[in-house]
Design a protein around this nucleic acid. Structure first.
Lengths: 215, 215, 215, 215
DNA sequence: AATGAATGAGAATTCATTCAT
DNA sequence: TATGAATGAATTCTCATTCAT
C-alpha cells in the first residue's frame, strides 16, 4: 500500500531534474559526450522516463528548454517604455539580465550551440523568436514614441537584433571560451557602454547613409 | 613523371585533403555528427590513412590544424612596428585578416569550439598560444616605442588579449550563429571601430584607476 | 508463466550464456581470434548486452569469471581438518577437484593465460587470491593441529602454494598443450602421488636446512 | 656511391633482429597486443622487410623460430649414450639445458602457447618433432643398451615424451605464470629429482601392469 | 506512468598485408 | 632488396531508442 518511492515527483519536477542534470553534464564534459543514459543514471530516473517527456532525446531536451527559457526571458523584458531619457538604464538592465541568464545557463548555451550545428529547424526557431520579439517591441515603440518614427521599422528591428546578438556573442565568449574581464561588474559595465556605442554607431552610419541618399 | 592513382599524393596533400573534408563535413552537419569513417569515404582515402596522420582521430585533426593555423596566423602578424600614428591601420588590417581567416575556417571554428568542451588540454594550449604571442609582441613594442612604456607589460598584454577575444567572439557569432551585418565591408569597418573604442575604453578605465591610486 | 523470446532470461542466465559462449569459442579458435561480436552472434544476444554486463569486453569476461570461479573453488575446499592421517585423502580429493575444474574450464584457462600476458592487475589479483587462501588455511591448521606448528607459517604457506602451482602447471599442460596420460584416473593418481612426493621433498629439504642451521 | 645505411645487415642478422624484437615485445605486452608494425618500428626496419622474410607475419615468425630452435635444441641433445649408470647425470643436464633454453626464450614460449591455440598445424608440427626425436633416440638406445630392450619401443618413447612434457609444463609455469622456487639451482635440482621420480613411477606402474598381464 | 534490459546501427580504432617506388 | 604509405576488413565500444513488464 505504501509507495516504494520516498516521494513521488510530479511531472514538472522530473522535467526540471532532467534539464538540470543534462546541462550540468554538458558543462562538465561537453555536449557530444553527454548521453541520455548517463543523464538517467545521474538523475536517478529511468531512461524510459526521459524518453517519455522528451521523445527525441537530447534534441528535445534542448529544444524544449530553449522554448521555455526564451519565452520567459523575452516575456520579462518589456522594452516598450524605453525613450531617449531612460534608454541607458534600459540597456543596462537588459544587459545585466542577459548576463545573469547566461551565467545560470552555461551548460544550456554550450548544448544549444552544438545542437544548432546539426538542427537547422532549431536554428530557425531561435532566429524567428528573436525577430518576432523585436518586431513586436519596435511596433509598440513606434506607436508610443515619436523619436522612433524617424527610422524605418526594419531598421529599428535590425538595430535591436544586432545589439542582442552582439551582447550574446560577447557573453558567450566570456563565459564559455575565455574570460574578458576579471569582475562581473566591470564586464556588465563594459557591455552596457558597448551597447550604447554600437547603437550610436549603427544609427549614425545609417543616418549618414540616409542623408547621403536623400541629398 | 605523372603518377598513377594510388600512392599519388604526398603527405601534406593528404593531410590537407583530410582537413578540408573534415571541416567541410563539420560545417554541413556539425561536429558530433561528423565521423572519421565518413571523412574517409568522402575524401576517397582509407580510414587507415586518417589514423596514420591523426592517431587519435577527430581530436588530433582539430589539434594539429589548430597548431598549424595559429602558428601561421600569428607568425604573419608582426605588430612590433605599431605606433600612435599607424595604430588604426594596424587594427584594421589585423581585424580584416582575422575576418578572412574565420571566413575560410568556419568548419574548423565550429569543430574547435565543440572540441574544447571536452578537451581541456586543447583549451589550455589555445589560451597559452594567445598569451605567449601577445606577451612577446608587447615586450618588443615596449622596447621600441616610448608610448607603450607608460603602461605595465601585464596591462598591455591584457588589452591585446581582450581585443583579440572580443573580435573573435563577434566574428564567430557573425559567421556561425547569426549574421550581424549584411556586407563584409561594413562588418570589418564596425569591428575596427569597435576595437579602437574598446582599446580606448580599456586604457581610460585603467588610467583612471592608476591615477586614483597615484594620488 | 512461460515468457516470450525477448527479455526472457534473467541476468545470471545471460551472464552464464556469455561465459559459455565465449569460452567455447576460445577453446575452438584461441583467445585472440575470439571477438565480442562473434560471441554475441553465437549466443544470439546483442553486442550491447555483452557490454552491459562486461563494460570492458573480453577483459571483463575473464576477470569476472576468474573472481567467481576462484571464489567458488576455494570456498569449497576447506583443508582445515587435514592431519597426518588423512592428508593423502585430502590431497587426492583436492587434485581430483582441480582436475575436474580444469577439464570443465579449458576455454577459460586458455583465455586466462592469454589475458594475464597483458593485464598485470589480473595477474596480481590471481596471485593474491591464492596466497590469501593458503595463508588463511595454514593459520587455521596451525591452531588445530600440533604437527603443523613445527613449521613456520611462511614455510607452510609456501609449500601449499608450491603444490597448488605444480598441480596446476601439469593439469594445464595435459589438458591444453599435450596429453600426459591416456586415462583420467591414471593422471589423477599420478598427480596425487606427485603432490605427496613434492610435499615430502619440500619438507625434507627444509628440515635438512633447519637441522643444519640448528647444529 | 656511399651506402646511406651505416652498415648493411645481412639476411640472418635481420631475421635475428626480428626474432629478438618480436619476442621482447611479446614478453612485455603479450602476444595478441604485439603487432608486426610495432616490431618493424622498434627494430627500425620496414614492415615490408618483415613480410619479405616472414610472408605470413607473426604466424611465420613463431613457426620459423620454432623450427630452428627445436632443431637446434634436439640436435644438441644426444641421449644415445645414456645407461643405468649415467642416467641421473643425463637427466640433470637435459633438465638444466631445458631450463636455460626456457629462460632465454620466455617471449617465444608465450607466443608459441598463444599461437598453437589457433594454429593446429603448428601444434601438430610441434608434437611430431618431439615424437620423432624420441623415437629416434629410443631406437638407438635399444640397439646399444640391453636394459632398454625389456621395454617396448612405444613404451619407452612414451616415457621420454612424458618426462619432456612434464619438465616443460613446470618450467613454463615457473617462468611465465608463477615462480615455484626462489633460486634457479633449487629449481633445477627439484626438476631432476622429479624427473627421476616420474621415470621410476612410470616404469613401475608399467611393469606392474605388464606382469599382471603376463600372469 | 515508470522501469531498465535489450537492441543494433554506427562510430572509433587496430593491424595484417599489399604494392608502387 | 628494402621501403613505408596506403588499404580496409575486422574489432572494440557507444549510445539513442524501443518495449515487455
Amino acid at each position: 500500500m505504501i509507495s516504494s518511492k520516498k516521494f513521488t515527483r510530479n511531472k514538472q519536477e522530473k522535467i526540471n531534474l532532467i534539464y538540470d542534470t543534462f546541462f550540468k553534464l554538458v558543462l562538465e564534459q561537453g555536449y557530444h559526450k553527454t548521453s541520455t543514459n548517463h543523464v538517467a543514471k545521474l538523475a536517478e530516473i529511468s531512461i524510459g522516463t526521459i524518453y517519455k517527456y522528451f521523445p527525441r532525446g537530447k534534441e528535445d531536451i534542448i529544444r524544449k528548454y530553449f522554448e521555455e527559457s526564451m519565452e520567459t526571458f523575452l516575456e520579462n523584458h518589456n522594452l516598450e517604455m524605453m525613450n531617449d531619457e531612460n534608454i541607458r538604464d534600459y540597456l543596462h538592465r537588459f544587459v545585466l539580465d542577459l548576463f545573469k541568464t547566461h551565467e545560470e545557463n552555461k551548460g544550456y548555451n554550450l548544448a544549444f550551440r552544438s545542437a544548432i550545428q546539426s538542427d537547422k529547424t532549431l536554428y530557425n526557431a531561435h532566429k524567428e523568436k528573436i525577430v518576432n520579439f523585436f518586431k513586436d517591441t519596435v511596433q509598440k515603440l513606434r506607436k508610443t514614441n515619436e523619436n522612433f518614427e524617424q527610422f524605418s521599422e526594419k531598421k529599428l528591428v535590425d538595430v535591436f537584433i544586432f545589439m542582442y546578438n552582439l551582447v550574446n556573442a560577447i557573453l558567450y565568449h566570456h563565459l564559455s571560451v575565455m574570460e574578458l574581464f576579471d569582475t562581473d561588474d566591470k564586464f556588465v559595465e563594459y557591455l552596457s557602454n558597448l551597447a550604447a556605442f554600437s547603437l550610436k554607431y549603427y544609427f549614425e552610419t545609417y543616418s549618414y547613409n540616409k542623408t547621403a541618399i536623400n541629398q
